[in-house]
Amino acid sequence: MLNLMNFEWKKSWKVFMLGITSILLVYTYLALQGTDNLYRGELGAGIAMALLVMLITVGSVALLFHSISFLSVDVKEKGYLLFSTPNSAWKMLGAKLTVVFLRFFIWGVMVAAIFFHMMSWLKVVELQGILLHNVPQIVFLILISALASLFFTMTIYFLISITATFLASWRNPVLFVILAYFGLTYVVDWVAVKLGELATWPVTFQWNMPIINQMNGFSVSGNMNAITFTAQGLSFNIVPALFYLVIGVGYFMAAGYLLDRKLNI
């Protein structure tokens, strides 16, 4: 298993490291510019800020789509290499997902750290205070977004494995994956919301705040229909979350079974 993970990691770690390094470099430049330049709207600072935001956004999306390629490339072109080894499909998928999750997590930590650090030298004291006192909550949020990305990846892996098995003779697998993704996600999300309404089992992280700010309550929608932000704290409904977990595991088991027994590449 370790061997597989090592192999998967080696696949594009240079690009990954390049992404992280370039963002850190841009951020360093921005930080050196200083708050004065930023507030005065100096061009250098402005460009660096814009570049930073762009890099982070593009990088996040790229990372997400790159996680897909971990399987799609193997299924389309290089299948003879990986699928001719006596590793069970679950092991192979597990290795890919581990590396994917690791990268998501590292990325998330980097983004959070940048934001963290930025708040300190931007001297946004109140926000800085809030953040410092809410580290566990923030780590939890990073974890959740990493898991959400993982769930996205796993859904796609499941659909890819269908195109590599039962629908192997279809000429447009990408189209199938895209359409099926939206269809499947819609149904799964709908069920998750319904379950959330039926049963609640909340785990609450209280905001650890010296002052209760006028923060508007807003809820996170999308894959993780389980988190509600309020002025008091972070409420996490475990029921839909468990449902997503079950579905995710289901995708994993199904994908592994298909790739193990019904392979057509």
Partner: peptide, 23 residues
């Protein structure tokens, strides 16, 4: 084992072909 037949079977040393045979 890169393709799965629709019908019929492949036996390796009397056993149904499966992942570990890839070794």
């Amino acid at each position: 084992g890169l393709l799965t037949p629709e019908k019929g079977q492949i036996l390796i040393n009397g056993e149904m072909r499966e992942t570990r045979h890839k070794g």
